[in-house]
């Protein structure tokens, strides 16, 4: 009887823990939104966080985007030319990037580059009592530190995803047109004919906005929730990256199901 009880309890514990954490995260999100006036009325605070989350991530985003686009073009060309459809290479590269790879891969890179840094910074501020000191100076750390970081991430993410897609398509152009010798005119015009601005590009931007929200919330929450020890911060940083990756992929599935169903 005791054994059964323990077994069921052990099964229940992670579930209740997860639920409790989700509840905290939801309340934390509400607190961020309630205290966002400071972040938006003092753009300097948010600007600095855009610099940290966005500007510092540009290099990795641009380089990765270029390579992903080039690989897509090489692989795509190999397959398409068997069916004599090599001139559709532009469509393949642009649609995969704009609809899926741009938002998703940029989101994953953003989580590991900027998300982990945000978690570590907030966690460290907590561990060294900087947040407590702020509170004792009658300054709300959620308004002063957390909300600007959150909005900085939310604003940076769609811009980074757009850069990723644009660089990827440029990479596809380099390989397809410059290296493999496809016709430049048909490369672009076929792409333009098949990619719809509202349906493909805007849906990609909406996806990246969702990912920006999710990753930023996870990053600030894990930092704020981290135990104030070296081990606690390192665990929280890892958790930010892992949770963000899972949430991005799950969200991507849900959003794709809604956006591109039956098209």
């Amino acid at each position: 009887m005791k054994l059964l009880f323990d077994l069921v309890s052990r099964l229940g514990q992670p579930v209740t823990n997860t639920l409790i954490k989700l509840g905290f995260a939801a309340r934390f999100q509400l607190a961020i939104l309630r205290h966002s006036a400071t972040a938006l009325l003092r753009p300097q605070l948010t600007l600095r966080e855009i610099w940290f989350a966005g500007v510092l991530s540009v290099l990795i985003i641009v380089v990765s985007g270029l390579f992903v686009g080039m690989v897509l073009a090489l692989q795509g060309y190999d397959t398409l030319q068997r069916f004599g459809a090599a001139s559709s290479l532009g469509i393949l590269v642009a649609l995969s990037l704009v609809r899926e790879l741009g938002p998703v891969v940029a989101g994953l890179l953003f989580a590991s580059r900027a998300g982990s840094a945000i978690t570590a910074e907030i966690g460290l501020m907590k561990a060294t009592e900087q947040l407590a000191a702020m509170e004792m100076m009658a300054v709300n750390p959620i308004a002063r530190v957390v909300a600007p970081k959150f909005w900085g991430g939310v604003i940076s993410m769609p811009l980074l995803a757009a850069m990723f897609s644009a660089m990827g398509i440029f990479g596809g152009y380099l390989i397809g047109v410059q290296l493999l010798g496809l016709d430049e005119g048909s490369f672009w015009s076929q792409m333009q004919g098949a990619v719809d601005f509202r349906l493909d590009v805007m849906n990609g931007v909406i996806k990246s906005l969702f990912f920006g929200f999710a990753v930023s919330l996870i990053a600030v929450f894990e930092g704020y929730d981290a135990p104030p020890t070296a081990e606690g911060i390192s665990t929280a940083t890892t958790r930010t990256v892992v949770t963000s990756a899972l949430v991005i992929l799950a969200l991507d599935f849900i959003l794709t199901a809604f956006m591109f169903r039956g098209v």
């Binding site: 642009a94 704009v98 811009l159 757009a162 850069m163 897609s165 644009a166 660089m167 398509i169 672009w188 792409m191 333009q192 990619v195 719809d196 601005f197 493909d200 590009v201 931007v205």
Partner: peptide, 10 residues
């Protein structure tokens, strides 16, 4: 990048 996607790509 967004303008590029809007005007050149789509």
């Amino acid at each position: 990048a967004l303008m590029f996607l809007a005007l050149k790509v789509s």
